[in-house]
């Protein structure tokens, strides 16, 4: 018996133009409005913007395009190395590969978008320090797909809501993971089995993702599902963010949380 899973969150269209917009970060909105070109450096990642569109994203928590492409032999590590040396950066290395025809365009575009949304998710994560934007004419819109910065932010908020609905405790996203004893023998899919096999009391979800050559957000989804099934838990005693105080619902001021609550209420009202 398998219960009906919670549906994937969708954006509340009626709210997209007014209420949700108020929840987006003022800095990103300004960068979008002025179609800024430059590099946004935040605590957990970096966005390269060209005319208000994200052309490249990097995060220490998300495997880069190079990892995704080389982990399973799509591209030889040496071929990536050569391209990266010639281009002097990940973003331009991808363009060289495209030009050289070493990879089918569709595969490269798909991997590029996967890596962009994945790193973007962490780059836009709540941070303890303010982001810095450096105007810089280097990033440019090239043949690889780009994403409006506001669209990336909205997708990131949707992904946060998805994780929250799967298992509300975010500790499993960043702490070392350990196997737990499930109450009953739970069925595990092959993809989640690969994640579970790497849970060793030391590695974190982003480290497991890198080891598997998988998107980190995909791994967070699997880890939260495994946590919900009682199969893994964060290692106790590791420094995890203190639990949120039980704030009265009417005094929520964090725009992201306010958005998530509205999205949840809208979904539940369907």
């Amino acid at each position: 018996m398998v219960g009906t899973p919670p549906p994937l969150p969708v954006r509340d269209r009626a709210a997209t133009d007014d209420r949700t917009a108020g929840a987006l970060s003022p800095m990103l909105r300004r960068l979008a409005e002025e179609q800024a070109t430059g590099v946004l450096v935040r605590e957990h990642g970096t966005l390269h913007l060209a005319r208000g569109r994200v052309v490249h994203a990097e995060s220490p928590l998300a495997p880069g395009l190079n990892v995704l492409l080389t982990a399973h032999g799509t591209l030889a590590a040496a071929a990536w190395q050569r391209a990266a040396e010639r281009a002097g950066g990940t973003a331009d290395a991808a363009l060289l590969l495209l030009d050289a025809g070493l990879l089918p365009s569709g595969a490269l575009e798909l991997c590029h978008l996967d890596a962009l949304y994945d790193a973007g998710y962490f780059a836009l994560a709540p941070s303890s320090t303010p982001g810095r934007f450096r105007y810089d004419g280097t990033p440019r819109i090239g043949p690889l797909p780009s994403v409006p910065v506001i669209a990336l932010e909205r997708e990131t908020l949707r992904r946060r809501l998805l994780l929250h609905r799967l298992w509300p405790d975010p500790a499993a996203d960043s702490a070392p993971l350990i196997r737990a004893d499930p109450a009953a023998g739970a069925q595990v899919t092959a993809r989640r089995r690969a994640v579970l096999d790497r849970v060793d009391g030391v590695r974190t979800a982003p480290e497991i993702a890198r080891d598997l050559g998988r998107q980190a957000f995909h791994t967070l989804v699997d880890v939260r599902r495994l946590a919900a099934a009682g199969l893994v838990r964060p290692v106790r005693g590791t420094p995890v963010p203190p639990p949120l105080p039980p704030a009265p619902p009417l005094t929520v001021t964090d725009p992201d949380i306010a958005l998530l609550k509205r999205l949840r209420d809208a979904l539940e009202a369907l």
């Binding site: 549906p7 994937l8 969150p9 969708v10 269209r13 978008l113 949707r158 998805l162």
Partner: peptide, 26 residues
Amino acid sequence: TSGLALGSVGEAPGGDHETTAAEAAE
């Protein structure tokens, strides 16, 4: 896994590619 449409063309049932993508993904 995420329910994200990485690309879309033409019509979507109900007029919204994003909602369709999330539901089809499930």
